[in-house]
Design a protein around this nucleic acid. Structure first.
Ligand SMILES: [Zn+2]
Length: 253
DNA sequence: CGGGTTTGACCCGCGC
DNA sequence: GCGCGGGTCAAACCCG
């Protein structure tokens, strides 16, 4: 008797644990999506406001040599938006490469300074530079402007981020701490999900990230559907609810 | 000591 | 020429 009950409880706990993990995944996906959208909005705002006379130049084939579009000849600059903590202005974006800071200036129309970085492999002929500056509204975003392409591989010292995105980036940057969504059950502490996105963070080209997000969403939906269709799961949930209602003699809230 | 960061000086293009 | 603003240099400094 006791053993059977315990097994049932264990099964329920396993179910709840899986569900919790799933919810965590979902929240992370939603956060990614939200940040992507915000970055896109900023990009759209910037491009819209900066184009006085709208020249909709379709810059074709970046990386190729066939760029005869006059307005933006220097199309090898790419801007990306990165979510970061609004306080702690360390102004560091970890993107897998190692950078050496070589300057910092205050700019005209932005109270936050702009930092200039060069690739650490510049001594071996890597001409990549980047500028990092806080977005002037929404201080929680960093604008990184990359210039050039690396001609060497990312010598990422161990830290195989391929398995599961562990805490790759430093705890100072790009951690979103959402105090809502925390279920005050056995996980107790609030959920701090780090959207590291270090390898392929919100670059200004949508397809892959969006596809991945959609894929995540689809997977989650499938999983949820399979869960809710599972009779044992519903029975377990009903049982759990009933026991949680009837079981304890008095429940606060 | 060998790397990186800080920070003021310097350079250069551009508009007046 | 001159001032301004963005980009870079490099001496000083810091740190493991
Ligand atoms: Zn490089």
């Amino acid at each position: 008797m006791m053993i059977l009950q315990m097994k049932l409880l264990q099964a329920k706990l396993e179910h709840v644990r899986k569900q919790n993990e799933n919810l965590r995944h979902l929240v992370k996906a939603m956060n990614n999506q939200c940040n992507d959208l915000l970055a896109r909005i900023h990009e759209a705002n910037r491009t819209y406001s900066s184009s006085d006379h709208h020249h909709f130049n379709n810059n074709i084939n970046i990386g190729g040599v066939t760029a005869q579009v006059p307005p933006v000849p220097n199309a090898k600059q790419s801007r990306i938006f990165v979510k970061a903590d609004s306080k702690d202005s360390s102004l560091i974006v970890k993107d897998g490469h190692q950078w050496r800071k070589y300057g910092q200036k205050v700019t005209k129309d932005n109270p936050s300074p702009r930092a200039y970085f060069r690739c650490s492999m510049a001594s071996s002929g890597c001409p990549v530079k980047k500028k990092v500056q806080r977005c002037m509204e929404d201080k929680s975003f960093l604008v990184a402007t990359y210039e050039g392409e690396h001609n060497h591989d990312v010598q990422c010292s161990s830290l195989g981020q391929s398995s599961s995105l562990t805490n790759y980036c430093s705890p100072k940057s790009s951690i979103v701490h959402c105090p809502d969504y925390q279920t005050t059950d056995s996980f107790g502490s609030d959920v701090t999900l780090d959207l590291t996105l270090s390898g392929s963070n919100q670059e200004t080209r949508p397809p892959r990230n969006l596809m991945q997000v959609c894929d995540d969403k689809k997977k989650i939906e499938e999983y949820v559907a399979s869960l809710t269709k599972d009779p044992s799961f519903t029975i377990a949930v009903a049982d759990a609810v009933a026991s949680s209602i009837n079981g304890p003699p008095h429940r606060p809230m």
